[in-house]
Simulated scan of single mutants.
Amino acid sequence: MQVFLETPRLLLRNFTEKDADNLYELDSDLDVIRFTNLGIIKGEKPINIDYETIKNITLPKWLTYYEKYEFYGIWAAIEKLSNEFIGWFHFRPASDNLFYFNLGFYDNSEIELGYRLKKPKWNQGYATEGSKALIDKGFSESDALKVVSMALANHTASIRVMEKVGLKFVAKYFHPEIQMDVVKYALDRSEYMVASKKNIANY
Rank of each mutant, 00 (worst) to 15 (best):
I178A: 01
W75R: 10
K121Y: 15
N108H: 10
S95V: 05
I41H: 08
D31W: 01
W88A: 06
K55C: 02
N83C: 08
E67R: 13
L26K: 08
D96R: 08
E191P: 02
E177K: 11
V170N: 14
D136L: 09
N22M: 01
D143Y: 10
A153L: 00
L152A: 05
K197S: 09
I33H: 05
E129N: 10
F99M: 00
V147W: 11
N154H: 12
A127N: 12
M180R: 11
M180F: 00
L12Q: 10
P60M: 07
P120S: 09
Y173I: 03
Y115N: 09
D96E: 13
D136V: 05
K198W: 05
N56T: 09
K55F: 03
L134S: 09
I74H: 06
E44R: 15
D29G: 02
T58Q: 05
A20V: 03
L167I: 04
T64F: 03
E44I: 07
T36Y: 07
I54E: 02
A151L: 01
V182H: 04
G104D: 05
M1L: 14
N37H: 11
L187N: 04
K45L: 06
V32N: 03
Y203M: 10
L5R: 06
V182K: 03
Y100V: 00
A20F: 01
Q179H: 10
P46G: 01
Y173A: 01
L117M: 07
A127V: 11
D21L: 09
G73Q: 12
D50V: 04
K184P: 02
R34Q: 14
L10K: 12
E163P: 00
S196V: 02
T53H: 14
Y51L: 01
K137I: 02
D107S: 12
N123S: 15
F4A: 06
F139W: 08
K172R: 14
D181L: 04
K184G: 02
K42R: 11
M1G: 14
E163C: 02
N202I: 08
R189W: 01
I40Q: 05
I111N: 12
I111D: 07
M1R: 15
F15W: 10
Y115S: 08
E112Q: 14
K18F: 01
Y24A: 06
K184E: 06
E112G: 12
K121T: 03
D188K: 13
V194G: 02
N154P: 00
K132P: 00
L134K: 11
T36A: 10
L11I: 10
I135F: 05
L38I: 13
F174A: 04
K184R: 15
S142F: 09
I200E: 12
T53F: 15
L12W: 09
L113Q: 15
N37D: 14
L98E: 11
I54M: 01
M150W: 02
R9F: 00
V170E: 15
G130D: 12
A171H: 14
A201N: 08
E163Y: 03
G43Y: 01
S190W: 04
N154A: 03
K184M: 12
L145G: 09
A76V: 03
A153V: 00
A94K: 08
A153F: 04
A153H: 09
L23Q: 06
T16S: 15
I200K: 13
L134W: 08
E129Q: 11
S140C: 07
A94W: 06
Y115T: 07
L63Q: 12
L152G: 13
Y69S: 09
K121Q: 12
L187I: 14
K168A: 10
K137F: 09
L10E: 08
F35S: 03
A201H: 07
